[in-house]
Amino acid sequence: MLRRRSQLLAWGGCLGLLVLAWILPASGLLNPYVQQVLMYVGINIILTLSLNLVNGYMGEFSVGHAGFMAIGAYIASILTVAVCPRFWGPWLFPFVLIGGGLGAALAGLVVAFPSFRTRGDYLAIVTLAFNMIVKSLLENIELIGGPRGYLGMARLTNVPWVVFWVLITLIALRNFVYSNAGRGVLAIREDELAANLIGVNTRRLKIYAFLISAFFAGIAGGLYAHLLQFINPRSFSILKSTDMLVMVYLGGIGSLAGSILGATIFTVLLELLRPLGVWRWVVGPLMLVLLMIFQPTGIMGLREAKILQPREEFGGVTRNPGTMP
């Protein structure tokens, strides 16, 4: 009985949020600028959740997630501009995004395979190389604009869609993290060899983690492309990847709530600092360095908000399993 009620509550909450996301902008209560910032926050939440799966939960170190984002953005854009009839655009938008996500997931495999053999610094370099290769390839394909970029997408991204995808990402990642596979992924972070030696198929898990992570980064890319209506290879450079790192480590590794916090704080802060002009870009890196020195686990490091944990997770034991005693 209690269980049914809490489930209803959760679904009701999600639905309520979606309705709110639909009504508020339509009612004119939110001015376009606030809407825009809200959408950036949402896209960044998806990106941060996606990167946190690999860097926070699995303990690998990806510095190339902008590469996945780029692939998602370009595939989705090409699909809306060159493939789908313009009239159907709004209806096909979710499928276009999924197309981009799947393309990115495929690229995720490219990084997952090297991760069988290498770890730590070397895997970081692999992901970095991946990011650079994607960017360089995009710059060299004239068909999609080369270094000038690609445009012509309708502005299909709006607040309800962003909220919808944030919820999907959050639910999918929560379900993954609190499962057999999710525990296996955590075990890889803690001690990969020991995980193997108690029967965890670490290779399969790495493929899963990279697939899921890349998929959602691709979705975020698609949303981003249809918000800006213009993308170019330079938007997906290593700088973008670094932004994602800042959000993950600001919010806290291995935490869904932390990812939401980190993405929100970072995005809003950068908006607030807009009057500073170029100096704004000095603040981000400085924040990152100070964060690493004084609060290396971020705001929520390895802890989770209770509302995001499945009720049945601990089989009757109900205390929050925070790391901090």
Partner: peptide
């Protein structure tokens, strides 16, 4: 070689 940051319960479940 336990999974040091995971709870005892999770260690066993892994």
């Amino acid at each position: 070689r336990l999974f040091k940051d995971l709870s005892a319960l999770d260690n066993v479940r892994v």
